[in-house]
């Protein structure tokens, strides 16, 4: 047990040192890389490791007779977590999210220190001491607080009320609610029911299953299936349409959306935000095919006004492409990224 705890303490110290290095910018945040794809769970596991480390550290210190008071443990952990979010996470997290996490962790710390009566007493002790002001030092502290707190609050209020010139926050609803139907080239498409006319099996019928089987492999590799090569001239039907869609894509779309469809095309970084990354599971993989059709046809200017600001330079492609071409491009995008359009049944 003791050995285990010592190991924990070691982890804790090492982790703290690492974090310290990151805070002071000695160690880059990317020193221990967050592995793409596993990152979310990795972050949680990392924090869990820290917690284990702290437990061991606290245990060891306790055994050595240098126990940290509960009060400072609580505050210390909270500060640790804030620093972790600020300096460990890369790319940096927006302030709004950090504020949420900070609040949650504050509540969690409170729940921790007040979970049992005994702990709560221990936690309150330093505060009570200052309030009771039995010793000279505490009395001094109390007067200090009496002066400092109103000044602080005043300062905060002043700050909050002072008109500021700051960048407006960007709030972008990436997937706005689509209209029920859209009219492209004089024909009305109901988004709920329309189907991609080129998503067909060899018999020419709409067939999700068949086309799903012919997309590139899912997962990291994204390799083409050997028996489904659209660039094989012999292929007809679905794969031929994919090829045609690809041609259209590389004539029109890849400048922004990139040749890997990852939103990092030639011109991509001229825009803020950068164009949509189709390989991200949060974009086309989450949407219905008709949604993409609507979005491509109407472009940035066709977006509904319910969510401002429509920071999108996407042109309304219906002015440049025919309906068939748009459907083919959509087909190609799904084929290339290896995602299936979302369906609701």
């Amino acid at each position: 047990m003791k050995a285990l705890m010592s190991l924990g303490a070691l982890i804790g110290v090492a982790g703290l040192l690492l974090l310290g290095g990151m805070v002071l910018d000695v160690v880059p945040s990317t020193y221990i890389r967050l592995v793409e794809g596993y990152m979310p769970i990795q972050m949680l596991l990392e924090v869990a490791c820290y917690v284990i480390g702290f437990t061991g550290l606290s245990y060891t210190l306790n055994a050595m007779g240098m126990a940290i008071p509960r009060f400072w443990q609580g505050i210390g952990f909270w500060v640790f977590f804030l620093l972790y979010l600020k300096y460990r996470m890369y790319p940096p997290i927006p302030f709004s999210v950090r504020a949420m996490y900070g609040t949650v962790s504050l509540v969690a710390v409170f729940m921790w220190v007040s979970a049992s009566e005994e702990d709560w007493q221990k936690f309150k002790q330093p505060i009570m001491n200052v309030l009771d002001a039995q010793t000279g030092g505490n009395r001094l502290l109390r007067y200090l607080y009496l002066v400092l707190l109103p000044i602080l609050i005043g300062g905060f209020s002043f700050n909050a009320m002072m008109p500021k010139s700051e960048e407006p926050i960007e709030l972008r609803t990436v997937h706005p609610a689509p209209p029920a139907s859209t009219k492209v080239h004089g024909k009305t498409y109901t988004l709920q029911t329309s189907q991609n006319p080129y998503r067909v099996n060899p018999e020419g019928k709409f067939d999700q299953e068949f086309t799903n089987a012919n997309i590139v492999e899912q997962g990291m590799g994204r390799l083409m299936k050997p028996n489904a090569n659209p660039w094989d001239d012999k292929n007809q039907g679905y794969l031929k349409y994919v090829r045609e869609g690809g041609e259209i894509f590389f004539q029109n779309c890849h400048f922004c959306h990139g040749d890997n469809l990852n939103g990092r095309g030639l011109h991509a970084f001229a825009f803020n935000p950068i164009p949509a990354n189709f390989t991200d599971p949060g974009t086309i993989a989450q949407l219905q095919e008709t949604f993409i059709f609507w979005r491509v046809s109407k472009g940035g200017i066709g977006l509904p006004n319910e969510g401002f600001p429509w920071a999108s330079v996407m042109p309304p492609w219906e002015q440049h492409l025919t309906v068939d071409e748009i459907w083919k491009v959509v087909l190609f995008e799904y084929w290339h990224t290896g995602y299936y359009p979302r369906t609701w049944d």
Binding site: P91, P92, P94, F95, N272
Partner: peptide, 16 residues
């Protein structure tokens, strides 16, 4: 919710 600077720093709409 983020400012354009944060957006740029993050390098995309989605945080990885």
């Amino acid at each position: 919710v983020m400012t354009p600077a944060e957006l740029k720093a993050m390098g995309g709409q989605q945080h990885p």
